[in-house]
Design a protein around this nucleic acid. Structure first.
Lengths: 365, 365
DNA sequence: TGGTGCTTCCCAATCGTTTGGGACTCTATG
DNA sequence: CATAGAGTCCCAAACGATTGGGAAGCACCA
């Protein structure tokens, strides 16, 4: 009876007067029937020209008339009707672990824009790592989404099983997953860029604040960092496993700097842990970048306003979101898209947390 | 032909084999028809019991049978079909200016949770202030949303006209608007809390970094701050109009501190401008909180990891999002909801950027 | 017997599209 | 002149739900 009784809904009635009697410009939207009448053709013919039917057996003349009618009447197909007939939803789900993280926000932005351009809706759902995605399940149950973008890097998000069990086409975003379509950025290259930049500044003893080992991005960033170090022939970086959180970064920094032979530069493999590390360094009275250089993975406006501003690696997460949408579309089209990667190279953003290695003795170690 | 040709779509075919012949547990979902058959009643009867039809003329026995059938077959109504019949979308649009701002993320989170609990979808759209909401317009054109939540505080977002012209029920979130349903938090109380706290710490000469005057929240926070100052009988705060951005906050701080008689405490009326101010203070060599206290409006994880951590006013933005959804539902139900306000009081979060006024001479001014 | 009133359920139209299967009009060809 | 084959377009059945309007069954009463 009332709108909000969604499970008990019978009638809805708000302002929008629906003029049933072949209304043209009247209160309501033009239906296909209207434009068919206006063009003097059958409704199915109208549908065919509007959809570019593959049979393509409608004359140029009628095509023009229908198009003109659709234009003057400002016809917009009713997506509910179309979706019903087509047995689809015209929407994707997008699962992210945390809305407040700027990195995910950027990804979401990219996905939204790409989807918008294709007339697709994106239903965003926030599901903290380890939590059950009940809201998302409901979306699936209600046939509200055709496919799912899972942008959670953690292996321990048990979501996947349920959705696969229900036959929801899925693309994994920002992580690799065995035998499943994935979309990633070049995390290895980003981490390698961080290391090479540190190297160029004379740092030879470097540390890395890694993320949890059950998080795919954390593994790949660590790999990229270490193998770049190997390539340049500097000692294996000392690692401390953070939690991809500010607190994790903070305690990781303490841990790294309590080494008898501490690093002169540290790479934090995500933004929040980098911010936490910066904060903790300040608490320890470690001056950055004079005594310790810091480079963080990920970029956000905030990084320009820490003290000092963070030197950072900017990854194309907006493109990642967009590519994810395209990839899911391909999956839905039946094309087996596998591991896609955004090829836009990582970008070093200046900041002021990276400086030359002052510890000359170390430089030649 | 292919999924992505949304304007040219004819057929869709991915894995999900649809078993047309009265499938029960078969590949596809159970339809209403299936549970009707299973319960041995007509489809309309099934619909009536499942929806709690107001006519209420179905016997207890059949009711039980239908319910049982729906349970065993795990019936979930097809939302496209229901929406078509009901001439609605079962979804709201949510317009926010910037996804990466944690404040909006919190609001979004609250709205999502509330909507999820009611079986509603929320389509989030990011529209920077001053930009055209083309994506959102498309959602309206496609009948994809029943109503709209506009969470942009800026007056100069010209969106509203178009949507009102198209008869889209709208609720304004986080701002007041003449003659329109709005939902807000108690910005005045938050700002007043900031001032009273500063006062308690002995500050008498205070400054405020305000937001743009054409932004409603900025006006209300400034009002709350100033009138609290009046109440306590301390001089009218010096104001500098920022831009609600870090850069704006930074230059506002410079401006305030270049006063011959600078404030001993500053209130930044949003998070980013506060962070910008903090950064700039550091650049000026102003020690916080020893030489200058800083209290910011809004809360986010990041505020705990600036140096020093920010003393801040936390507002219930998640509740705001939830209330906004409820308000829009009321509007759709025809009830004229006007200016709602989340009554949860603002909360002061410690941090370390507020300290006692060291400038004793000023304290008694 | 026939009429009235309840209770309980079924019928069928409808929401707005898409699409396989004809039906009709030409023109070309044997 | 009959027939075939294009070229166009219309018909009608879906997609899966909701709902006003009966219809059937039964009890009651005159």
């Amino acid at each position: 009876m009332r709108y909000h009784d969604l499970d008990v809904i019978n009638e809805i009635d708000w302002g929008i007067t629906v003029d049933n009697a072949s209304s043209k410009q009247g209160g309501s939207r033009a239906r296909l029937r209207d434009i068919a009448a206006h063009a003097g053709v059958h409704i199915s013919t109208a549908s065919r020209v509007l959809n570019g039917d593959p049979r393509g057996e409608v004359s140029a003349d009628t095509t023009a008339r229908v198009l003109a009618a659709a234009d003057t009447l400002q016809y917009k197909p009713n997506s509910a009707a179309r979706n019903l007939r087509l047995r689809r939803a015209g929407a994707f789900g997008l699962l992210i672990p945390d809305l407040t993280h700027p990195t995910y926000a950027t990804l979401v932005r990219g996905a939204l824009q790409e989807a918008e351009g294709r007339g697709l809706a994106v239903l965003i759902t926030e599901v903290p790592d380890g939590a059950a995605a009940i809201g998302l399940r409901r979306l699936v149950d209600d046939h509200r989404i055709d496919g799912l973008l899972i942008a959670t890097a953690s292996d321990r998000s048990a979501q996947a099983d349920w959705f696969e069990g229900h036959g929801v086409p899925t693309v994994y975003v920002n992580r690799r997953a065995e035998g499943k379509p994935t979309v990633t950025v070049d995390d290895e290259a980003g981490a390698a860029l961080a290391l090479r930049t540190m190297y160029d500044y004379g740092h030879r003893r470097v540390g890395v604040i890694s993320g949890p080992h059950d998080v795919d991005t954390a593994r790949r960033r660590l790999d990229g960092f270490i193998s770049a170090a190997n390539t340049l022939g500097i000692p294996v970086p000392v690692e401390s496993c953070g939690e991809y959180t500010a607190n994790g970064g903070a305690s990781a920094l303490t841990s790294l700097m309590s080494d008898p032979n501490p690093p002169t530069a540290i790479f934090a493999s995500n933004l929040m842990s980098g911010i936490g590390a910066l904060s903790r360094a300040s608490a320890h009275g470690i001056r950055i970048p004079d005594e310790l250089s810091l480079v963080v993975f990920d970029d956000a406006e905030i990084a320009d306003f820490t003290v000092p501003a963070l030197t950072r690696i900017k990854m194309p997460f907006d493109e990642l979101g967009a590519l994810a949408v395209r990839s899911l579309i391909e999956v839905l089209d039946g094309r087996q898209a596998r591991d896609l990667r955004v090829e836009t190279p990582p970008q070093l953003i200046g900041g002021a947390s990276l400086g030359p290695n002052m510890n000359v003795g170390m430089a030649r170690q």
